[in-house]
Amino acid sequence: MSSSICDVAGIEVGHATDGRRPTGCTVVLARAGAVGAVDVRGAAPGTRETDLLAPHNVVERVHAVLLSGGSAFGLDAAGGVMRWLDERGIGLEVGPARVPIVPGAVLFDLPLGDARIRPDAAAGYAACEAASRQAPAEGNVGAGAGAAVGKIFGFARAMKGGIGSASVCVDGVTVGAIVACNALGDVVDPATGRVIAGARTPDGRALLDAHAALLRGEEARPMLAGSNTTIGVIATDAALTKVQAGRLATQGHDGLARTIRPVHTLSDGDALFALATGASGRTLGMMTLGAMAAEACALAVLRAVRAARAVTLPGVHLPAAGDLA
């Protein structure tokens, strides 16, 4: 049985995938609320409600996090998540109403298929309807449906990205992550140092190793700023403060740095959210929790590309990691 973010008590995940072209969205639900935080490291983010999660701001608990394709258009999917939660009376009590708190982030997947098709409120609602405690599907689903990696020397030499999830348990406390990997850079297995998906050689038949190519002086040819991005959610059943949850999100980026080269670039909008449900009724030291977050994120990135499958559309072919292994 594979590990996933759903191993964290109080967390559910649902995908909505649009079959008309590769795009979709993923919702991480915390119906009872969870202490929330975020750390945005990329230079071209597309986000919603991230200011709310700053440690000096008053709202502490969130009820869902949206991860979506469709670039900035995909933020519309959060409206459907809010409607689904509102129908069930889930939200922050503010006098006459309950307002669901739904932060989110988007990635750029518009080059695949008809760019006029992108996740909307109906997709966000559908993802909530599909949510469960079961380990979520990985690869070409949800926010990972249109993801691609290794675009640093042009989209024509990229490979298929995806979405993946993993968890780590220490002394009865669990930290899990779900990551949609749409990185400009390559994905590297930190255990071996080998590139497993990323920029290909000019003939498209082999992996290039973008990091080594940059150090040789080859000129990068990235797409427009914001046309990439790795986004994800870290969740734990540990009891954390908002400041501590923020540190968990920060240390989760260590996992991205281990597995994506280069990462946090001018052309990426990398963002990680953190949710602490407190369902275990206990905690661990932040050193241990941070190490767990980094490990879960690294494993989720690897699972995202290993579960991905090739996509062929008019004018573009993106092989998957298994095709070039």
Score class of each variant (00 low, 15 high):
A271M: 05
I101R: 03
A64H: 02
R118I: 12
P190H: 05
I231R: 00
A115I: 09
V170F: 04
G69S: 08
V195W: 00
R83S: 07
S4K: 08
T50N: 05
R258S: 03
A32R: 14
V149M: 06
I163W: 00
R98P: 04
E60I: 04
G91F: 11
A121C: 03
G161A: 07
R48K: 13
G204E: 11
Q251D: 15
L92I: 08
T26Q: 10
V179F: 08
S267R: 11
M286H: 12
V188T: 08
A279M: 03
M287S: 12
T174L: 07
T174H: 08
N228A: 12
M287N: 12
L289V: 09
V316Y: 02
T241C: 03
A137M: 13
G19E: 14
P22H: 09
A296Q: 03
A304K: 03
S227T: 15
R157V: 13
C169T: 15
C6P: 01
Q134N: 13
A235G: 11
V65P: 01
L75N: 04
H15Y: 06
R31M: 12
G150N: 08
C25A: 09
I178W: 02
A183G: 09
G142F: 09
A34S: 05
E93K: 12
S280G: 11
G204S: 10
R309Y: 01
A213H: 07
D109M: 08
V38T: 10
V316I: 15
A213C: 03
D237Q: 04
G80L: 08
Q134G: 10
R306S: 10
F73E: 02
K151M: 10
F155R: 11
G269R: 00
R200K: 05
E60H: 13
V27R: 00
R20P: 01
G204V: 07
M159Y: 04
V179H: 04
R157P: 02
A291D: 13
V28T: 07
A271T: 15
L266A: 15
S3D: 13
G91E: 09
A325V: 14
A177R: 02
D186S: 07
P222L: 10
E219Q: 14
F155Y: 13
G322S: 12
A321T: 09
C128L: 07
A307Y: 01
A307P: 03
T250V: 14
S227C: 12
R48W: 08
A131Q: 01
E12H: 00
L92D: 00
G24M: 02
V170N: 04
A274D: 04
A212S: 14
G146N: 02
C169R: 14
F155P: 04
V106F: 01
A320N: 05
K242G: 06
H63D: 07
R21V: 06
E219L: 13
V187L: 06
A276T: 02
S71T: 13
G95T: 14
A235S: 10
R282C: 09
A183H: 06
